[in-house]
Amino acid sequence: MEYRKLGKTGLEISLLGLGGFHLLEISFEKIRGLVKTYLDAGGNYFETAHAYGNGESERKLSKVLPSSGVVIATKTGKRTAEEAKRELLKSLKNLNRKHVDILFLHAVTDDKDWDRIISSGGAIEALEWAKVEGLVRFVGITSHGYGGTLLRVLKEYPFDLFMTQFNYYDRFNFPEIETKVLPFALSNNIGIIAMKPLADGFLFRSVERAFRYVKTLPVSCIVSGINSLDQLKRDIEVLDLPVYDELELAELQRLAPELGNYVCRLCLECLPCPEGINIPALFLAEGRFDRQMLNGEYEDVQDYALRDRLAHWFQSEKQARLEYQTLSPGVSECTECGVCSQRCPYNIDIPRKLKIVKSKFEKGYIW
């Protein structure tokens, strides 16, 4: 098992982290075997939350974790200091621990959410209280989808670490995570935990590609939701593969089946549009809206069901609409000249895709 340093915390953690949500789905005996195999392989990072089954994930882990030699993280989704304090104390009781290594503020996704947290009586006070009382060693924040608020948060408060999604699919729906948040974190020695390497399961057919991609990034740990020994062994095996070089990354971006000839890679080769349309910005807004998953063409019923379930997983529609509304000229100005499609190195039918984007944002439009 490879180990990487977790930013300013100084902790050395295993590249593969064991997520706690999916432990709700399996029996205690299976969890015992899963944890033993993970520990035997060198894994040392366990993550859970009180919100996972109202403490059930924490209680299950408490019965199988060793008393030392592991890093334990839990989360609170509460936004006031008093509620967050109470939830942390419940988590400690569930975990049968006097303290945890890491406490995350869970799922901080927009500016209003952050404003509540840092206001008088907000949850940030609970984190500071917990550190003073010795109940937590380090504090972090988790975020999903759009990274604008996450970047603001990291600039305004000295968190020790953060966790958000990293995968080669959402790289093109929320590019600011890799282009802005990641560099800021690295320059300020903030620990980086990656989650959703399989894009919530969307990349289940491409496990090797998915894990190699995230391993290539300068993250400290990749947390995976695992509910079987087969999944665990597979994840350990693929993480033993080498990182991608630049040519391999370009090849992945070009040929990944989940990206296909629909997902915009934001390469800008389609510009300039004769009508002045900012084509990549419109497709980026679509990425915020539904992760560019609903494309009107599906391989089979399973593919459709998965896309339909995951399209709005991050709930970034508000940000998507804000971005869409600021773009002028809009989709209606497209003359379908086809120049953009001829330039696109990924063979995207851009006029068709623009119609789909319009149908998503403007009720009643049929493409």
Rank of each mutant, 00 (worst) to 15 (best):
3 Y>A: 06
10 G>Y: 09
11 L>A: 11
12 E>Q: 12
13 I>V: 15
15 L>A: 08
17 G>F: 07
19 G>P: 00
20 G>N: 03
21 F>R: 13
23 L>T: 10
23 L>V: 09
24 L>D: 06
27 S>C: 04
28 F>N: 11
30 K>R: 08
34 L>V: 00
37 T>L: 08
38 Y>D: 02
39 L>Y: 06
43 G>N: 04
48 T>W: 03
53 G>V: 05
57 S>P: 01
61 L>K: 10
67 S>H: 13
71 V>H: 01
73 A>I: 00
80 T>Y: 06
85 K>N: 11
88 L>F: 12
93 K>Y: 08
94 N>F: 06
103 L>T: 10
103 L>S: 04
107 A>M: 11
111 D>Q: 13
111 D>I: 13
118 I>S: 12
124 I>Q: 06
132 V>G: 03
134 G>C: 02
144 H>A: 07
144 H>I: 05
144 H>Y: 10
147 G>E: 04
153 V>K: 05
153 V>F: 04
155 K>D: 00
156 E>D: 14
160 D>Y: 05
164 T>M: 10
165 Q>M: 12
168 Y>A: 13
169 Y>S: 08
169 Y>A: 03
170 D>A: 10
173 N>D: 14
174 F>N: 08
179 T>S: 15
185 A>D: 04
206 S>N: 14
208 E>K: 13
210 A>Q: 03
213 Y>R: 00
220 S>H: 06
221 C>Y: 04
235 D>E: 10
239 L>S: 01
240 D>P: 09
244 Y>E: 07
249 L>H: 09
252 L>R: 05
254 R>N: 15
265 R>N: 02
267 C>Y: 06
280 P>Q: 03
284 L>P: 00
292 Q>V: 00
292 Q>M: 07
293 M>S: 08
294 L>P: 06
296 G>F: 15
299 E>V: 15
306 L>Q: 10
312 H>T: 04
313 W>E: 11
315 Q>K: 15
317 E>H: 02
317 E>D: 02
318 K>D: 14
323 E>Q: 11
334 C>D: 02
337 C>R: 13
340 C>L: 02
341 S>D: 11
343 R>V: 03
354 L>G: 03
366 I>S: 15
